[in-house]
Design a protein around this nucleic acid. Structure first.
Length: 340
DNA sequence: AAGCCGGGGTA
DNA sequence: TACCCAGGCTT
């Protein structure tokens, strides 16, 4: 589930961290969602973590801890769709079903010169039927993995190495002399709009104000800095003052500009102009999804990457230098990759 | 069927 | 900058 829309190399450090903290299904089932999100932090697509947690709770409670072994049962689990259900069934339980993800879809689309979008269910079913005929009943899991491996090393999206391909004789695209890079066909994606926002690091009694996002949707359940989308012609400071006054009843004192962070999500870009300041007067009591968070508590809350980057920017502005020994996120991930 | 959902490597 | 990655869920 972690590998969903995530490259293997990118997932490895998160996999290590997650399985170290939750080595068993039961340990995952017993954890709070907030801690699960914290351990998942940075991996993205946070619904995957919520679903995996829900699935663990469900299996521990209703199945006596036994993971289902058939495709229909697996597909009923939250976060488990057609691919993951078939991958688990074939690889963990030896069920003879093809498991097609994007590598497999690409390969079979090229083998058959499939002219339509391979993500359309009807087309997808056709490709699955083709692969079902090739799939050896004795080792379906190994076969499914081999198809992915072929897609990763030989039949790549760009610059495929047909000369090295062990099954080019089976490939209709290769035999016809058609450029394999023209397949599979995919619908173009709409381009991502830019959203201009301003956020504030608002200090009060040794803490800063954070708010938890709604339990579903973008970054669901994660904690972030308060802020607002800037309206046309509106200054960053005006947007933040308006939002905190109208939504929380807080009057913001003098603020200072601390820099800009740009971040990209799956379907839009965002620009965060960073402000820092204090509360004017005494703030009202906060609702449950808002808290004054001490530096110590901050280490336990799940934060989106953009928020982490904003806080890092503030720390650098405050200290002028990074304390020796501390690594940036990027440097830390690079270190994780070279010393897994 | 189409849109939503993160983050990062790569060309 | 645009594209894509061991997809699934919601509308």
């Amino acid at each position: 589930m972690l590998l969903q829309q995530t490259r293997v190399a990118q997932a490895v450090p998160y996999f290590e961290r997650f399985t170290r903290r939750f080595p068993t299904l039961r340990s995952l089932a017993q954890a709070s969602q907030e801690e699960v999100l914290k351990v998942w932090e940075g991996a993205g697509y946070y619904a995957r973590a919520r679903h995996l947690h829900q699935a663990a709770v469900l299996i521990a409670k209703e199945q006596g801890g036994r993971i289902p072994s058939t495709v229909p049962e697996l597909e009923r689990l939250p976060g488990v769709g057609p691919y993951i259900a078939r991958a688990i069934a074939s690889q963990a339980f030896g069920v003879a079903v093809p498991a097609l993800e994007s590598n497999g879809l690409r390969i079979v689309a090229r083998w058959t010169r499939e002219a339509h979008d391979v993500r359309v269910p009807k087309v997808r079913a056709t490709l699955e039927a083709v692969l079902s005929r090739e799939l050896p009943v004795s080792r379906p899991g190994a076969y499914n993995e081999a198809v992915m491996e072929l897609g990763e090393t030989i039949c790549t999206l760009r610059a495929p190495r047909c000369r090295e391909c062990p099954v080019s004789s089976l490939c209709a695209t290769y035999r016809a002399g058609v450029d394999p890079e023209t397949l599979p066909k995919r619908a173009p994606k709409p381009r991502r709009p830019l959203v201009r926002t301003s956020v504030i690091v608002l200090h009060h009694r040794g803490g800063i104000l954070l708010q938890r996002r709604p339990p579903r949707g973008l970054l669901g359940g994660l904690w972030e800095l308060p802020g607002a989308e800037r309206r046309k012609g509106e200054l960053p400071e005006q947007a933040v003052r308006r939002e905190l006054r109208e939504e929380i009843g807080i009057t913001v004192g003098k603020v200072r500009f601390r820099g800009v962070v740009r971040h990209s999500y799956s379907h839009f870009h965002v620009e965060l102009r960073i402000l820092e300041g204090d509360v004017a007067g005494s703030p009202p009591p906060l609702a449950g999804h808002r808290r004054w968070v001490s530096p110590r508590e901050l280490t336990r809350l799940p934060l989106p990457r953009a928020t982490t980057r904003v806080l890092e920017t503030i720390r650098m502005a405050g200290t002028r230098r990074r304390p020796s020994g501390e690594r940036t996120d990027r440097a830390q991930r690079a270190a994780d990759r070279s010393h897994p």
